[in-house]
């Protein structure tokens, strides 16, 4: 939801804290789950992630979550899906050139990052997403990667 998404960016510091606190727990829990159930619970877990991140960030389930590095503003909401933004077409009011009614995702990102403890992560270069991961869970990926 657009309004909640803006709220999340305004409260990026709090969201960062929540993420830093709960993400390791979620990953730990999922690691256990994966050990016991294999991939049998992938679908419901992915659905929970999509619902939660969809509500707060309008998450597009790219499968390569960058929220903690982009000021809690999901870059996949950019009409050009730019992962290192913004582009040169931001309007004078800070809104998107393609969707004038929407605040530029990357104006929001730099704004959100400025409030975060590890906000400087936005300065790191991100490579293009792996399109095979679309629709898959970032949480499960973290649980399986370790």
């Amino acid at each position: 939801m657009y309004r909640v998404r803006l709220w999340s960016v305004r409260h990026s510091r709090k969201m960062e804290w929540l993420y830093a606190t709960f993400n390791p727990m979620v990953v730990k829990l999922l690691r256990g789950t994966v050990k016991v159930f294999g991939n049998k619970l992938d679908k419901p877990i992915t659905a929970v992630e999509a619902a939660a991140k969809g509500f707060f960030f309008d998450c597009k389930m790219c499968g390569d979550c960058a929220l903690s590095k982009t000021g809690m503003s999901c870059p996949m909401n950019c009409p050009k899906t730019i992962r290192n933004g913004p582009c040169g077409g931001v309007r004078e009011n800070g809104h998107c050139e393609v969707k004038p009614e929407m605040r530029c995702v990357w104006v929001a990102a730099w704004d959100g990052a400025s409030r975060m403890k590890d906000g400087d992560a936005i300065k790191n270069v991100n490579f293009a997403v792996d399109h095979r991961a679309k629709g898959t869970s970032s949480w499960l990926k973290m649980a399986r990667d370790d």
């Binding site: 009409p79 050009k80 730019i82 393609v98 270069v125 293009a128």
Partner: peptide, 26 residues
Amino acid sequence: SGDDVSVGDHPEAKPVFDFDSVSLLQ
């Protein structure tokens, strides 16, 4: 990165944007 298809003369085209300008540089 490029202008979005919606501003051009073929707005019905599929936008690709597999890269952005920075990943293209890389």
